[in-house]
Simulated scan of single mutants.
Amino acid sequence: MAKIMKVALVGLGIGQAHIERGYAQNRDILEVAVLCDLDRQRLAQCAERFGVERTTTSYDEVLAMPDIDIVDLCTPPMAHLEMILKALKAGKHVICEKPLVGSLADLDLVMAAEREASARLMPIFQYRFGDGALKAKRIIEAGLAGKPYVATVETHWRREADYYDVAWRGKWATELGGVLMTHAIHQHDMLTFLMGPVARLFGRTATRVNPIEVEDCVSASLLMENGALATLSATLGCAEEISRVRLCYENVTFESNHEAYNPGEDPWRILPARPEIGEQIDALLAGWEPVGNRYIGQFRQFYEALQSGGPLPVTTEDARRSLELVTAFYHSSETGQDVLLPLDASHPKYQSWRPA
């Protein structure tokens, strides 16, 4: 029988979705044993709703619990750095929502702590874990797609005043960014997951929809390392919410479904350029086993990696690639210049991507 690992869920906003769409389907291997939140009313309501007996408002108390194997951090972004470092020092494995931290300097600090720790850290990029995205990944990695040409990524969502009634949202100091950081980050991760690293970026950001500090509209032109060209756009002012990833290769065109919050899942349009390519794709995907959608698949693969000592399904290197893109985006928008990637400690925004 598989060992059941015990989880402390910290932060009961998005944390409730982790239970409903991840832990509830993985009860054979993962048990949410403790809930932690500063809001006592929400804590009590969630404990009753999900049948969790242990609750606390103290993160330090969570870290002192000897039976807890994993802490799942679903707190506001500005709290992540200290909480990650404390958990790794306490020997607890960590799952952490995006954005992992607030700068490349902070991320490098986390990565150094991770190398010294006995525990492991997995950032959340749950949109990768859909059968549509992973079928595309398999086709590309098998070489059937051929030469990459262009890609487009659209994150067209809607957020109005009620969304920003939450005190920490819409502010640089607490949310750490706007649509680029909090909403489009998953679709942009899907682009690099499928098409590889970005080599050069020119981007623009603007605040046009809401009276907030951070941006709510962005666009960018990218040159990928593989030579392909990509365009990104995101807004929080779209009447119809969609997420769309479209990748054009020599032999195949891929297009995600348009569900705003689940673009990685089937059905994807996979359009072969010639009948024989279609036949090869059918043969490659024959007997496909579903991976477990979003948190379901990511949490299960995390558990399997912890048990085997194998590679994590999402790594801090993946998070760094994502935050390099964010950093380059903000820098390009401020300076009106192309930005070359990857970025290191010599970059002007290494310590912070917030506006000068």
Score class of each variant (00 low, 15 high):
His188Phe: 13
Gly102Pro: 01
Glu304Val: 08
Ile124Glu: 14
Ile281Gly: 04
Leu312Phe: 05
Asp67Lys: 11
Arg169Met: 13
Phe299Gly: 14
Ile124Leu: 10
Glu175Asp: 15
Glu304Met: 09
Thr235Phe: 01
Ala136Pro: 00
Phe299Pro: 08
Leu134Ile: 07
Pro267Gln: 04
Phe193Tyr: 09
Ala161Pro: 07
Pro348Gly: 09
Arg42Gly: 02
Cys96Asp: 07
Met181Phe: 05
Ile95Thr: 10
Leu81Phe: 12
Glu48Tyr: 10
Gln298Asp: 06
Phe50Lys: 12
Glu97Lys: 13
Lys135Asp: 01
Arg138Pro: 03
Ile84Asp: 00
Phe125Glu: 10
Leu121Trp: 00
Gly287Thr: 03
Cys46Leu: 04
Asp108Asn: 03
Ile19Trp: 09
Asp37Cys: 04
Ala305Asp: 05
Ala24Asn: 09
Asp162Arg: 05
Arg49Cys: 02
Asp131Arg: 02
Gln301Cys: 12
Ile139Phe: 06
Gln41Phe: 05
Glu213Pro: 11
Asp69Lys: 11
Gln307Tyr: 04
Leu341Asp: 01
Leu229Asn: 11
Thr205Gln: 11
Gly143Ala: 01
Met190Ala: 15
Leu100Phe: 10
Gln337Phe: 06
Pro148Thr: 06
Pro342His: 02
Ala161Lys: 14
Lys171His: 14
Leu325Pro: 04
Ser333Ala: 13
Met1Arg: 15
Glu215Cys: 10
Pro77Asp: 03
Thr55Leu: 12
Glu141Pro: 05
Cys46His: 07
Ala8Ile: 04
Pro66Gln: 10
Gly146His: 08
Arg49Ile: 02
Leu107Glu: 12
Asp338Trp: 14
Asn26Trp: 00
Ala234Phe: 04
Arg354Ser: 12
Asp338Met: 12
Arg354Cys: 07
Gln337Ser: 12
His156Ile: 06
Ile212Phe: 07
His258Asp: 11
Thr155Cys: 15
Lys135His: 04
Met78Trp: 15
Val218Met: 15
Ala328Lys: 02
Ala64Leu: 07
Glu61Asp: 12
Lys137Ser: 08
Asn257Met: 03
Cys46Thr: 05
Arg42Thr: 02
Val314Leu: 04
Lys92His: 09
Glu116Trp: 15
Ala167Phe: 11
Cys74Arg: 14
Leu121Gln: 00
Glu97Asp: 11
Asn210Phe: 00
Lys6Met: 00
Ala133Lys: 15
Ile185Cys: 07
Lys147Trp: 05
Leu271Asn: 14
Ser256Thr: 08
Glu97His: 12
Gly102Ser: 04
